[in-house]
């Protein structure tokens, strides 16, 4: 699998993990706070493992890929870049992303590259708990108008997480009609703001070890 394709996946996991980690300490209940924080950590862990694979090919390190690129070089999907520190949108994104990610990981587990297939299988075992968590919340929130609204709003962005040929399956699984997807090809202002914050310590003393 090529480095750019790996980076797309890694960037999704990194940025989503970063967004989800904003809930650590302020989630709606203390029990949920602990649970959601584990999910954020797992996503960052997946990003790190994927960056390590890409870094071998590119002759760099996972940290350099995660922090030292220009914001315009990130390949993350607009769905994960959105800053929505509000529970209905957070769960709507979580549910849509985990459902899409299951489809993506199923394909990756069949990859010719044994390293990629092996990592996909490991990630999928952790994602299984994320999916349980996402479905449990989706069940609880499904009758809440603000949740339904959030799902509708994020749906075109969720389609953009997957390759075009995988989108029909996502539509089938979540029970929505396919619409035009919001693609990865544009720079979001929200990603730039996130990048400014996530790299500020690292940029303060260039080249230092932390």
């Amino acid at each position: 699998m090529s480095a750019p394709a790996l980076l797309e996946l890694a960037d999704d996991e990194l940025i989503l993990g970063w967004r989800d980690s904003e809930w650590t300490g302020i989630a709606p209940s203390l029990e949920e706070d602990v649970a959601f924080s584990s999910i954020a950590q797992n996503e960052i862990g997946h990003a790190r493992a994927l960056y390590e694979l890409a870094a071998r090919e590119l002759g760099t390190t996972a940290d350099e890929l995660a922090f030292d690129r220009d914001p315009s070089e990130y390949r993350s999907a607009p769905l994960v870049e959105q800053r929505r520190l509000e529970w209905a949108h957070t769960i709507a994104r979580h549910y849509l992303y985990e459902t899409a990610d299951e489809i993506r990981l199923a394909a990756l587990k069949q990859a010719d590259d044994a390293d990629v297939a092996g990592l996909a299988a490991k990630m999928d075992r952790e994602e299984q708990y994320h999916r349980l968590h996402a479905r449990m919340w989706n069940e609880r929130l499904r009758d809440e108008p603000r949740y339904q609204e959030a799902l509708r709003e994020l749906w075109p962005l969720a389609l953009g997480v997957l390759a075009p040929e995988q989108r029909a399956e996502l539509a089938g699984r979540v029970g929505f009609e396919p619409v035009d997807a919001v693609e990865r090809d544009r720079q979001s202002e929200e990603l730039r703001e996130l990048w400014e914050e996530m790299t500020m310590v690292r940029r303060s003393v260039p080249g230092a070890t932390w």
């Binding site: 980690s21 706070d33 996972a62």
Partner: peptide, 19 residues
């Protein structure tokens, strides 16, 4: 500072500590 941790390892450790 969870959002500003300067490496992936620090990010994970600080998130785990706050958790």
């Amino acid at each position: 500072w969870i959002l500003r941790a300067p490496t992936l390892q620090r990010k994970l450790a600080l998130t785990a500590k706050v958790q």
